[in-house]
Every structure is written in C-alpha cells, then in structure tokens.
C-alpha cells in the first residue's frame, strides 16, 4: 500500500511539475528577429576621434567600436567574458575596461589582459563606407 501511494505521489508530482517547468522555461527560439542583424551603421568616422570608443546596439547585444591612437578601427561584442557586464573603452588607460570587476582587454585584439575575465571578447568586422563606419558579424 505504501509503495503504491509513494509511486502515485512521485508520478503525480512529476505530472504537476513538468508543465510548470515547461511553462517557465524560456523558448529557445524567442531570440527575436533583432538577433538576425548582420551589420550596423554606427557613426561617421569623423565623429569618432582617435583614442575613443562608442558603445552601440548590435541586434540583441551591446557592442563596442574603438578608434585607436594608431588610426585603427576595431569592434567587439561588448559583453565581459567574466560575468556578463557591458564593457567600455577607456582612453586614459587605452584599454577596454569592465567597471563591474575591473577586467581589462586589449583594444586591438580583444584579448583579456588583466583582471578576472577568462576569455577574449568576440570580434566584429569593421569597414568604412563613404565615411560611415559599418560593423558587421565577423
């Protein structure tokens, strides 16, 4: 009798909990159309002085465009590989910086060079078309 009751209780619990779990679990395909963005016109090159950066939206994630001192243009997914904060470019230290836990990245390669981040930032492609800086998926 006890075994039967236990089995029914477990089955009943499962039957009740599974729909609740499915109801709450985010759908894998809820990634909206915005994630399908392949390129973004960020700004005019003349609006981005050397040794500065600009955070912008790239589909569903934040991104960062950097104009380095040596006139290079680099773009990255601006999500810190440590705990997901949005990074920024700091001209005073000439590095990409995460304000949450002090992680630092190389502004030309995105490589993690100081602090807790375990991996480099994901790179994006940069092109200049008629003075417009266009960033696209790498």
């Amino acid at each position: 009798m006890r075994t039967a009751l236990g089995t029914v209780a477990v089955l009943w619990g499962g039957v009740a909990l599974y729909p609740i779990y499915r109801y709450l679990a985010p759908r894998p395909d809820t990634s909206d159309d915005e994630t399908q963005v392949t390129s973004v016109e960020v700004c005019k090159l003349s609006e981005l002085p050397k040794n500065s950066g600009k955070n912008f939206r790239f589909g569903s994630f934040p991104a960062l465009l950097i104009h380095t001192e040596d006139d290079g243009l680099h773009a990255f997914k601006a999500v810190c590989t440590h705990l997901g904060c949005t990074v920024q470019y700091r001209g005073d230290i000439q590095r990409i910086f995460c304000a949450c836990h002090g992680g630092q990245y190389d502004p030309t390669t995105g490589k993690n060079i100081a602090g807790p981040p375990p991996k480099p930032l994901d790179s994006l492609k940069v092109a200049v078309v008629n003075d417009q800086v266009v960033v696209s998926r790498a």
Binding site: N55, F56, R57, P62, L64, A78, H82, L83, C85, T86, V87, Q88, F97, C98, A99, C100, H101, G102, N112, G115, P116, P117, P118, K119
Partner: peptide, 29 residues
Amino acid sequence: NPFAPAPIGIKPEWYFLGAFQFLKLIPPM
C-alpha cells in the same frame, strides 16, 4: 540601458560587497 556600458565605480549593496570584491580578486584560471 541594456546597451550602455556599466558605469565606472559601480558597486552592489553592502551585503554583496564581500562577494563582489572576492570575485574581483580571483584570476581568470
């Protein structure tokens, strides 16, 4: 603004400060 960078000097409430500082000190590996 989910697309703006984290503000410089951002800190959690005092009761999470210990964990926050601890996480800052740990190297990548």
